[in-house]
């Protein structure tokens, strides 16, 4: 109270002026106000947006502003092809399809502003993040799970509502093809129909930074088993995280969109 009284009136007036100008300028910009729903895109406008899937790569992309921070506990399922924007009310730079390698599209929320939700995305580069206007094209759910991977310790830890559910030893990428650090997420759950090293594979949103492509694929990093456990605790993969069958069974229980923080 004393603070308010001691501030000269001219300063207060100036501050109010600054705030008003800021509000006015955002209102006068050519883009829609941040909280408003975006204008619906026409067929051509939507068609030219690149698909945000594990095969995609977005140039000059907005990135995760806080790759070491905690995400929210919300995940969003994309039920209808959905444009993704560089900021609330900003420009669209891609679109999320409803399917990712056969699994339904779920993305984790890392921030929210009204109906706008900032989500992590499955295309290159690593850390790609964008804003979706959630109503109408998504369903949301609470995801109590998170996973951390500590590369130096070859360890993976599963958390539920912040409480550890156990730590598991893993194998990681070799020095020349390192497992990429950052805040990634579980993109899909697949029963492999061609490759035989792991019956089930959990592809992440992450990509190898050293393998632009791998085996004909887009260099997607995944959690999976290996025919033997000899690689656990070693840096021998091309970027993927190799786990034991027991660990994979636990990871397969986690919802799509679960954030996997690799440090």
């Amino acid at each position: 109270m004393a603070t308010t009284a001691s501030v000269p009136r001219t300063v207060l007036t100036a501050l109010i002026g600054v705030v008003s100008v800021a509000l006015l300028s955002s209102g006068c910009s050519s883009e829609a106000p941040a909280q408003a729903a975006p204008a619906e895109l026409g067929t051509a406008d939507l068609a030219v947006l690149p698909d945000l899937n594990t095969f995609g790569k977005i140039d000059n992309a907005p990135l995760d502003p806080a790759p070491t921070a905690k995400a929210t506990d919300k995940v969003f399922k994309v039920t209808k092809e959905l444009p993704v924007y560089d900021k609330p009310g900003g420009k669209p730079f891609g679109k999320l399809p409803t399917v990712q390698v056969g699994s339904p599209t779920w993305v984790p929320a890392i921030a929210e502003q009204g109906d706008w939700v900032q989500v992590l995305l499955p295309a290159r580069p690593n850390g790609l993040a964008g804003w979706i206007h959630a109503p109408g094209s998504t369903e949301s759910a609470r995801n109590p799970y998170t996973v951390t991977v500590n590369l130096a310790n070859y360890s993976l830890e599963i958390f539920k509502d912040g409480a550890s559910q156990g730590t598991h030893k893993v194998g990681i990428g070799k020095a020349e093809f390192p497992t990429p650090k950052g805040r990634h997420y579980l993109m899909a759950s697949i029963e492999e129909t061609k490759n035989t090293y792991s019956k089930y594979v959990l592809p992440l949103s992450a990509h190898s930074d050293s393998h632009e492509t791998f085996g004909g694929g887009p260099g997607t990093v995944a959690l999976h088993t290996w025919p033997t456990n000899e690689h656990i605790g070693k840096s021998t993969s091309d970027g993927c995280i190799r786990v034991t069958p027991e660990t994979l069974t636990k990871l397969m229980d986690l919802p799509l969109g679960t954030v996997i923080s690799i440090t």
């Binding site: 390698v101 056969g102 997607t220 919802p255």
Partner: peptide, 25 residues
């Protein structure tokens, strides 16, 4: 059973989809 499908708006446990993707091994 804690990740069971759809309890109180909780995200569901995924069902593996038969698919093929060449990941980084």
């Amino acid at each position: 059973s804690s990740a069971a499908t759809g309890d109180n708006g909780v995200a569901p446990k995924p069902v593996p989809a038969p698919a093929q993707l060449d990941v980084t091994g």
